[in-house]
Every structure is written in structure tokens, then in C-alpha cells.
Simulated assay, not measured.
Amino acid sequence: MLALGFFGWVIIGGLAGWIAGKVMDDKKGLILNIVLGIVGGLLGGWLLKIIGVDVEGGGLIFSFVTCLAGACLVLWIARLLGARSRG
């Protein structure tokens, strides 16, 4: 199977962050959404590894879904923290 490694997670995470920005209707901008997507992808992969899911053998689609879910989670948390700091 395709082992993505760190750079694979960065590339797929960036794409997932861009898509997550569209899905979450986030207005942070392209660059920040990509960065948050990369962070979300790494976080999602790390969390799945902790609970025992084989993220390295999951394949490209599994990795993309993991990154997309992680990016949406990070964008949602960022939105909550932003609203809390303004409120």
C-alpha cells in the first residue's frame, strides 16, 4: 500500500483544508485554510493512530477523508475560539 509519510499528509492535508474551508463556509482565506487543513490532517492521523487504526495502510481515499474530517474539526474549533475571544 501507499505509505504517505509526513509530506503526503501535508499535501493531502492542504487540499483537504481548502475543501474544508468551502464546506464549513469559512472566511479565513486560502492560505490559513490550507495551514489549518495540514494541522487537521496531522491531528486526525495522530488521533486515529492512538485508537489503533492503521492510517498508513488505509490508502489515499482513507487518508483524504481523515484529513478532511480533521480539517473541519480544526476549523470548527478555530471558529469557536474566535467567537469566544470576541464575545
Rank of each mutant, 00 (worst) to 15 (best):
V74W: 00
V39A: 14
D26I: 11
G41F: 10
L75A: 02
A16S: 11
L75V: 13
G29E: 02
A20R: 09
C67P: 06
W46P: 03
L73S: 09
M24C: 06
C67F: 04
I50K: 12
G29P: 01
N33W: 04
G58R: 08
K22T: 05
G52D: 04
N33F: 09
L75Y: 10
G58S: 09
L15R: 05
V39Q: 06
G52E: 00
L48P: 03
A16T: 04
G58I: 06
L36C: 08
L47Q: 04
N33I: 09
V35K: 11
G14C: 05
L80K: 15
K22S: 04
S63E: 01
I31V: 15
A3C: 02
I11G: 08
G57D: 01
G14W: 00
I51T: 11
G40W: 01
W9D: 02
V39R: 06
I38W: 08
G13T: 08
A69F: 11
G8D: 00
I12M: 02
W9E: 03
L36E: 05
I31L: 15
F62A: 07
V35A: 15
I31F: 13
I19H: 01
A71E: 03
G37M: 07
S85H: 13
I38E: 00
G41E: 03
G41R: 07
A83Q: 14
V39W: 03
R79Q: 14
G52Q: 05
E56W: 13
L32F: 13
I51F: 03
G52T: 11
G8A: 02
E56Y: 09
R84F: 13
G82R: 10
G14D: 00
T66M: 05
L47Y: 12
G37A: 04
A78E: 09
A69D: 00
G40M: 05
K22D: 04
G52Y: 12
G58Y: 11
V10N: 01
L4D: 02
G40A: 08
G57I: 06
V53I: 14
L80M: 13
W18R: 02
A83T: 14
I11Q: 01
L73I: 14
I31C: 03
A83M: 14
V55Q: 00
D26G: 10
F62K: 04
L43E: 03
L36R: 14
V23T: 11
C72W: 07
L42T: 12
M24S: 11
W18V: 09
W9L: 09
G59S: 04
G17A: 11
D26L: 11
I31W: 10
S63P: 02
G37S: 06
I19N: 00
L47V: 14
I11F: 08
S63K: 08
K27I: 08
K27T: 14
W46H: 12
V65A: 09
V23G: 00
R86N: 09
L47N: 08
D54T: 10
D25Q: 15
G5W: 07
M1Y: 10
A83R: 15
R84E: 03
K22A: 05
G13R: 07
M1W: 07
G58Q: 05
G8I: 04
I11E: 01
I51K: 09
L43Y: 10
L47H: 07
V55I: 13
I77H: 04
A69N: 00
L75P: 09
D26V: 12
V55E: 01
K27E: 11
A71M: 07
V35H: 09
R79P: 02
V35S: 09
V39L: 14
M1E: 04
